[in-house]
């Protein structure tokens, strides 16, 4: 995008294992300055785990993450201090603080005043507090929430809470901001507004790495997109390349596999059903066919549930919300065939 491209984030061979389960396997990813990079993948692919590895919430089992050339420390507050800010998939605002205070908390790393200067109200305290407030109000204006500065965060509507989370992350003057599903649960208008906001953030000179399920959103927005499947990076490229890649399509929409109800069997089942309706007397065989089909489905669902659960054993972080994505439901059940082998 910009002429002077500097590598902001450089993740090399990031691997994250939880016991026997490898949630993220050997993922490389770079983000250059002025870039918006998207990270997509089916539910349970390890996107959020990868994010947590980048922000110091997890210490990667292998590999290293560099920010502007220096290796990131394995503590999330130090990562923020270094210049990477993040939002959360399920909103984690400070609910009982006002909107302004939320953003002021985001300023924490960029301010220095300690307890003594607060207790003695040294002149520097007033100055810094004033500067922080101005900066915070500026950010609230940027996201369009300045008129609600004194409201409690918990009383904001959903879309504004997402925006506030972004403002809070921006308050730490980051060089890179990581957005975890910024449009989850938003309607199309709000999604468009979020798109504008992310472009505006990029124009401020902040690189953006975004996880998203909304394909239209991500392909509009991103300069590059990486696709994560089963913890591994499948492909990285422009929106067009990723969109047309067969493996991505397969990961999302699935490919035929042995034992799955193929076209023939589906036809068979349908025929049987039709037959059964016509002639209720001959129930037995039709029922059998149906039962078979149902069994196959159940087995699949089970396998899928298992892997999902395993991949998400990172307990205290957010479980993926399957309700929100519009492409996944069909894809999920089919991808599980590949999963089976790996997870066990």
């Amino acid at each position: 995008m910009t002429t002077t491209t500097e590598t902001v984030l450089d993740a090399r061979g990031v691997t994250m294992r939880f016991g026997g389960l490898t949630a993220v396997k050997n993922v490389d990813l770079t983000v250059n300055s002025g870039e918006i990079v998207g990270l997509i993948g089916p539910n349970g692919a390890g996107k959020t785990t990868f994010f947590n590895c980048l922000t110091g919430l997890y210490i990667p089992t292998e590999g290293e993450v560099r920010y502007k050339g220096t290796v990131l420390p394995p503590k999330s507050f130090k990562v923020t201090a270094a210049g990477i800010a993040r939002t959360f998939q399920n909103i984690r605002l400070f609910n009982n603080m006002t909107v302004l205070e939320n953003v002021l908390v985001g300023r924490h790393t960029r301010t220095k005043e300690g307890l003594w200067s607060a207790l003695l109200r040294l002149p520097s305290f007033g100055k810094e507090e004033q500067a922080s407030r101005e900066k915070a109000m500026e950010l609230l204006e940027f996201i369009g929430l300045d008129h609600k500065a004194e409201h409690l965060a918990r009383n904001l509507p959903y879309g504004e809470q997402r925006k506030l989370e972004i403002a809070r992350a921006l308050a730490s003057d980051p060089g890179l901001i990581l957005l975890d599903e910024p449009t989850a649960g938003m309607n199309p208008q709000e999604t468009r507004a979020a798109e504008e906001l992310i472009f505006a953030i990029r124009d401020k000179g902040i690189a953006v790495l975004v996880i998203e399920h909304d394909m239209r959103f991500i392909f509009n927005l991103c300069d590059r997109v990486a696709c994560l499947v089963q913890g591994e990076k499948l492909i990285e490229g422009t929106a067009g390349e990723v969109q047309s890649d067969e493996r991505v399509v397969a990961a999302y929409l699935g490919e035929p596999f042995e034992g799955a109800p193929g076209a023939d069997e589906v036809a068979e089942v349908e025929a049987a059903e039709a037959h059964a309706e016509e002639a209720p007397a001959e129930e037995a065989p039709a029922e059998e066919a149906q039962a078979e089909a149902a069994e196959a489905e159940a087995a699949e669902a089970e396998a899928e549930a298992e892997t999902d659960a395993d991949a998400e054993t990172d307990a205290d972080t957010e479980p993926e919300t399957p309700a929100e994505d519009d492409t996944a439901p069909a894809a999920d059940s089919t991808t599980s065939t590949t999963t089976d082998g790996e997870a066990k």
């Binding site: 507050f77 923020t80 400070f94 603080m97 002021l104 924490h108 300690g114 730490s172």
Partner: peptide, 22 residues
């Protein structure tokens, strides 16, 4: 003050507070 806000932030959500650089 800055420190008081950090306290309240930790009370509200410690993980998020750490991610904000506290």
């Amino acid at each position: 003050s800055r420190i008081g806000r950090a306290w309240v932030a930790i009370r509200e959500d410690e993980t998020a507070a750490e991610a904000m650089g506290i």
